[in-house]
């Protein structure tokens, strides 16, 4: 026990153990989320969903993952090979790194950086690069479409997202995620800043390319968008990244607005995960309820509605803080 404590006290060892834990968490979490998504969708659609493999199909996704690993990695003749191979890896790395700063509880955090929230936002932007790489190198018109749309969408929704986060930062006065959680020991920020919460959830849905903002992979228009040409494990990495991104977005929402790990009786980490999965459920609920927006409507929505609202919210926050 003492050894473990000593080991975790060491910065380097903590990182190594942390990264291994994160990789394990990411895989297990993605498998769980995919199962959850299928179950949530099924029950919203009057059907039971996967039922065959394991109790209520619980290990169906494991079987799917094994199947995907066994699939041939097809590299179409006309693709730009190095970039085509690199894109799935590039989408996965920043996702992993974001986990470094997420506080699962007051002690369960790999590295409590003083710029934690900025790190996450910066890394999440990197995923656009990968989508662009994937779309461009595929040498497929549908994939390029998806990539271009994705860039436009992410640029548009990054701004209101950042501005919304700024209004929280103003209230706390720190970029440190643990400080933000600590500041909510009395009232959660969702009660103080309801508009910011709504804006954040909308932007997070768009940033993770989830319906109704799943324009980059709009199935009925673009076949599969940027990952049209990907097969097997490469496709699985994109899939994994999507669900992990969802987890990170929900975790950030939990930290910023829902009081992080705080809650009565249950241990902090349980509370944290409960809240995260509740937010994820909300995102899934959106996906299985709404039709998709049109691309121009999506961009207009960001520039004409979300960004002004986010700035108004920031100004009001600043004003209230100044007057208090």
């Amino acid at each position: 026990m003492e050894l473990v404590a000593q080991l975790l006290g060491n910065e380097g060892a903590r990182m190594v153990v942390g990264l291994i834990a994160v990789i394990a968490l990411v895989s297990v979490n993605a498998l769980f989320l995919i199962w959850m998504e299928r179950k949530v969708a099924a029950h919203m659609q009057l059907r039971p969903g996967p039922m065959e493999v394991g109790p209520h199909g619980a290990i169906q996704t494991v079987a799917d993952a094994i199947k995907l690993m066994g699939k041939e990695l097809i590299t179409p003749a006309e693709v730009d090979k190095p970039i085509f191979w690199l894109a799935p890896i590039v989408i996965f790395l920043p996702v992993l790194l974001s986990f470094l700063v997420i506080p699962f509880s007051s002690t369960w955090i790999i590295k409590d950086m003083n710029v934690g929230i900025l790190l996450i936002l910066a890394f999440s932007t990197l995923s656009v690069l990968s989508i662009l790489m994937a779309g461009w190198s595929s040498n497929n018109k549908y994939a390029v479409f998806g990539a271009i749309r994705s860039v436009a969408q992410n640029v548009a929704y990054e701004i209101p997202l950042l501005v919304t986060v700024m209004s929280i930062i103003l209230m706390v006065g720190s970029f440190k995620l643990t400080d933000i959680v600590a500041a909510q020991s009395g009232v959660w920020f969702v009660a103080v800043q309801p508009l910011a919460f709504i804006l954040f959830i909308i932007c997070a849905t768009a940033e993770t390319n989830r319906a109704p903002f799943d324009i980059p992979e709009a199935e009925s228009e673009l076949v599969a968008g940027f990952h049209t040409e990907y097969t097997g494990m490469r496709f699985a990495l994109f899939f994994l990244a999507e669900y992990t991104n969802m987890f990170i977005a929900a975790a950030v929402a939990t930290v910023l607005f829902l009081g992080g790990w705080q809650g009565p009786i249950l241990p902090g980490v349980v509370w944290f995960l409960l809240k995260v999965y509740a937010v994820i459920f909300l995102l899934m609920w959106f996906r299985w309820t709404f039709p998709r927006l049109r691309f121009d409507q999506l961009i207009t929505f960001a520039w004409k509605i979300l960004i002004p609202l986010a700035f108004v919210n920031l100004l009001i926050t600043a004003l209230v803080l100044k007057l208090r």
């Binding site: 919203m44 319906a211 109704p212 199935e219 709404f290 039709p291 998709r292």
Partner: peptide
């Protein structure tokens, strides 16, 4: 048609 617009759920309601 709703599936074309990206909403999957109505499809299964109709099929029911």
């Amino acid at each position: 048609y709703l599936m074309d617009l990206g909403a999957f759920t109505p499809f299964l309601y109709c099929f029911d």
